[in-house]
Design a protein around this nucleic acid. Sequence first.
DNA 1: GGAGCTATTGACAACCTTGTCGGCAGCTAC
DNA 2: GTAGCTGCCGACAAGGTTGTCAATAGCTCC
Lengths: 213, 213
Amino acid sequence: MPRPRPPPPPPVTRRRRTAQEARDAILDAAERQLVASGPDGIRLQDVARDVGVSHPTVLHHFGSREALVEAVASRALDSLHDDIVAALRRAPEGEHQVAALLDGVCEALESRGQGRALMWLALAAPAGHRDDLRLRAQAEVLHATREARSAGRAMAPLEDSQFLVVLAASALLTQSVLGAQLLRGAGVTGAKAPARFRAWLARLMLAHVEREG
Amino acid sequence: MPRPRPPPPPPVTRRRRTAQEARDAILDAAERQLVASGPDGIRLQDVARDVGVSHPTVLHHFGSREALVEAVASRALDSLHDDIVAALRRAPEGEHQVAALLDGVCEALESRGQGRALMWLALAAPAGHRDDLRLRAQAEVLHATREARSAGRAMAPLEDSQFLVVLAASALLTQSVLGAQLLRGAGVTGAKAPARFRAWLARLMLAHVEREG
DNA sequence: GGAGCTATTGACAACCTTGTCGGCAGCTAC
DNA sequence: GTAGCTGCCGACAAGGTTGTCAATAGCTCC
């Protein structure tokens, strides 16, 4: 007779969510952990406490820690991708197009720490496992725009547009991870330094495009 | 009488290093772990096994895991800084100066995974703890060079040089972490893609400097 | 009101990690 | 050779992690 009645359990009333609500809440908490401490920093106990459930509940919904990490990583990358696509679509026409575009992507990378999440995952990935940065389409759009503008004049090769996209992605991603740290390290001061840097980068890219076609 | 003689220990002959040799070997192993799995991935047991000692030996030499991580991080960052300074000094004069410089810094970042180590540490750092990227001196050297060249003509502000250095650092660092992943994601193919990208970046920077003074 | 489904839970197990401790064993100096 | 310093080790402790399981308790449907 092993303890037929454990000490009368405190008459707490359990909250019962739908499976979807529970999964979402758990993913939210896990994503915060991912951004803050990386995939290895995701602890079932912490996530559970954050959501207000016990850790077996997390396992009930995701099966294993590994599956949870996979789920949160997929969701974060998809959401980042969607945000970036939305930012690109939102970019206005005209002179300040590039600057606004960079600002939009920057917002997508930094608003919820998605840039950090991406970098964590890239570092932790077992040697090129996640290789879908999905920049190809953006490079092609940029190149098509340049072709339309050039109107038959000398035209830079496709690789030039690809490199431009890679350069912008590198700069914005690094900014989202290192924050103002890199700028401060170089001696740039002021609260608006990141914004100034983005504007400068936009001018640099624009000048390059106008020079090279 | 608790086991006065455990099964006669296998007559292995211990290897006895000097304290310095042991510390260095342990740091080497811990650094490999740091590059591969980040600071959180450094396990005393793994490091010890890698070196060929028992884990209490590691604790004997460093006192605690935290101290070991701190030591390996400091050593890695110092070594990276030294390598980069050496690469900058080595850069030749003349037209291909910038390209060679980027190649040198790239080598310093990638040869032993130092770029990955830096990014791991930046991500894991508790909100701007390590802020010494030490780019300021390099920005100032670049600016001085430009001033000497400009010879009194219109001169870009110091911030322009600082942004240039930040941009180059971002691109090279991202390359060292994401490797060819980013380039492949943008649609760039070929084994020499990273080198081509660096050469392209060098031309871009050079063109900017010649345009802006 | 009652039955069934299932989200939820406490208790437990197995494992791994850091850290401590006493003692063993190379190396050096005398 | 032998005494001492100290690098090194086996064994153990304490705490934290993931994962299992049987049981509980909300919610919906009848």
